[in-house]
């Protein structure tokens, strides 16, 4: 009865609005993005060994992979980010967030939501993600959440 709802009506529209028209594509090649993500994961490990949380977050959140065909780089970045989040003491979180530039705060919020959306992740890292979410919202406000929802450059 509801099968008509599954019909892709856009295929009959010659002038349909494509996702790619709604944001500027990443100029980098997917292989290059992946290589970049790997290097950053290495750099983050080094910084974490020296307990430089803010530095590690800045590196991983800068120029984060987005768009199609870079799923591997996206997942690698998410797992690396989660390592950082997990190793941060809860008393340090607010200070670290305040030291981040606005762009990095917005990107961090995107990853927190991505992490919460991963099937099964809620059991493992749900409380960590929620803790960061609460503190990030205190600093950057609900505007930061709004930007996560509107931004088509999905991480």
């Amino acid at each position: 009865m509801d099968s008509f709802r599954k019909i892709d009506i856009d295929q009959y529209d010659e002038d349909v609005l494509q996702d790619s028209e709604l944001y500027d594509a990443d100029p980098r090649d997917p292989a290059e993005v992946l290589e970049d993500a790997r290097q950053r994961a290495g750099a983050v490990r080094g910084l974490l060994a020296r307990n430089d949380i803010a530095g590690a977050l800045t590196i991983i959140l800068d120029n984060a992979p987005y768009g199609p065909n870079v799923d591997e780089a996206k997942n690698l970045t998410l797992t690396t980010l989660l390592t950082i989040l997990n190793t941060t003491k809860s008393t340090e979180i607010t200070g670290v967030i305040k030291s981040l530039p606005l762009d990095a705060q917005d990107t961090l919020m995107k990853y927190l939501y991505k992490g919460m959306a991963m099937p099964g992740w809620g059991d493992i890292s749900g409380s960590v993600l929620l803790g960061w979410h609460e503190k990030l919202t205190e600093v950057a406000g609900v505007g930061c959440i709004v930007r996560t929802m509107t931004d088509r450059r999905i991480v």
Binding site: L102, A140, G141, V142, G143, V146, R147
Partner: peptide, 10 residues
Amino acid sequence: VYNIRMSSLP
């Protein structure tokens, strides 16, 4: 272009 990000709603 000057962009001002707000912490509140749109």
